[in-house]
Amino acid sequence: MLIKVLLLLAIAVVVVLSLRAPAGARHLAVRRVSVTGFAALAVLSVLFPDAWNAVAQVVGVGRGTDLLLYGLIVVFLGYLVTSYRRFRDLEGQITRLARRLALDEVADDLRPARVPGSDGDPPSEGTPGPRTRPGAA
């Protein structure tokens, strides 16, 4: 049955994308295109409600509503995994923010001990920059 192949393929694509989706501008563009496409599809469904039935017949599903449900499940899965990724990104940002706050709070205690001539250094400068290391891939 064609529908099974299509749905399994779609689910596989969602999972693969979730593992290796590039963050940033490209990712954002894909999201926006998807939303626009979704809206266009919704408009077409309203204007031509019988179209779903026709498509359902072609791919081997009984009714258009069933096809719609299957599609919704795939989209929901995609939403789930992209949300998880965005959540992780956000968490990373919060982590860096919290770390900065925590370290700044004790900046006066965090100067190298017993280094001659270091007494003139302001606490926030003159320290090795931890955020611009080459290993930070």
């Binding site: 919060i94 919290a98 925590a102 965090l110 190298p112 320290t127 090795p128 931890p130």
Partner: peptide, 27 residues
């Protein structure tokens, strides 16, 4: 001990990384 306080709970990995950066600043 010198205590660095995360304002919220982030996890042990995050705490270690904060500790590493503190240690770096301490030379």
């Amino acid at each position: 001990a010198l205590v660095v306080e995360h304002p919220l709970n982030l996890g042990q990995g995050a705490a270690l990384q904060t500790g590493f950066e503190a240690a770096r600043l301490l030379g």
